Amino acid sequence: MDDKSNRSVIVIVAHPDDETLWAGGTILNNPQWDYFIISLCRKYDQDRSSKFYKVLKILNAQGIMGNLDDGPEQKPLDDIEVQQCLLDLVPQKHFDLIITHSPLGEYTKHLRHEEVSKAVIMLWNEGKIYADALWIFAYEDGEKKYLPKAIKKASYFETLKNDIWIKKYKIITETYGFEENSWEAKTTPKKEAFWAFKDPNSAVGFLNK
């Protein structure tokens, strides 16, 4: 997946740590890309937000956080609310690539991941986020039968080199501070995968399917 050309890339996730869990290896593998990373939740969570900005420095990325509700009960949010929060955070510029959640989520189940994915796809389709292509995370957990794993048949599938995975794992455990026996640490994928879309219509088709 390594691309030596410079790319402007916006990574849009629900939570601080999602960018590392699901795409950290890809980001670390392509340091020549210009990254802007958005977390739509936890802006006022002093612990998580401070760690997120430390991670941005490690990844040599710029970024910003929003404050979407992220309560444990996962109350559904209105589509317009999620889209507006996103529009308030996205720089008004053209990107070569968007990377974000799948509308199916990465595991069973986190509603915010699905809502963020839907918002990104719809805003890209409406021309309110400007980008040439979209990659969405391609992971599944067999409906909680096992930890999330990359989908081999996705558009892109890559086994991370050990040194890259170790850097990724250290971000999760040392910078974000998750214990080695935590779900996050045990999940940290050694393989990363993405479904790729070159036009909004195909992404909307995937969303509706």
Rank of each mutant, 00 (worst) to 15 (best):
P31F: 03
K149L: 14
F36G: 03
G142V: 01
K149I: 09
A138K: 02
F157G: 02
M122R: 15
F157E: 04
L56D: 04
K51S: 10
D70F: 15
S49I: 07
Q92E: 13
S102N: 13
H94K: 14
M122K: 15
P148F: 04
I98R: 05
T20M: 14
A150V: 00
L134Q: 06
S50K: 11
D141M: 06
Y156L: 15
D132Y: 06
D47W: 01
G25E: 06
R42Y: 08
C41P: 03
D132L: 12
L59N: 01
Y53T: 08
R48Y: 11
I121T: 03
D79V: 09
L59F: 05
A61P: 00
L68I: 08
A154I: 05
E126R: 13
Q83M: 12
A133N: 08
L134H: 01
D70E: 14
E115H: 12
Y53V: 04
E81D: 14
D69F: 11
S155T: 13
Q84V: 05
I121L: 09
Y53W: 15
T26L: 02
Q62G: 14
P31G: 10
D78C: 12
L97P: 03
L147K: 00
W135S: 07
E140K: 11
V55L: 11
I136E: 02
T100M: 07
P103T: 15
I64E: 11
K109F: 14
L123V: 02
F157N: 03
I37V: 14
N29K: 09
N67E: 13
L56V: 09
K118I: 12
Y35N: 06
L97R: 14
Q92V: 10
K118F: 00
Y139W: 09
E126T: 04
K118Q: 14
K57G: 03
Y139A: 09
Q83R: 14
L77H: 12
L28C: 10
D88P: 00
Q74F: 08
G63M: 09
M65D: 06
L104R: 06
N29R: 12
K144Q: 14
V82G: 01
K109Y: 15
E158D: 07
F137Q: 02
Y53C: 07
L40R: 02
D45W: 04
I58M: 08
V55P: 04
A131E: 05
V82L: 08
G71L: 15
L89F: 06
T26M: 07
W22Q: 01
E106I: 04
I37F: 01
I136V: 15
L59C: 10
K93R: 15
E143M: 05
Y146Q: 12
K149Y: 00
W33D: 03
H113Y: 10
G71T: 11
L21Q: 05
A154V: 05
C41H: 07
F157V: 05
I38T: 08
Y107L: 09
S117K: 00
S155C: 13
Y44D: 13
L123P: 03
F36E: 12
T100R: 06
D47G: 08
L134I: 03
Q46Y: 09
L40F: 03
I98Y: 01
K144L: 09
I64Q: 03
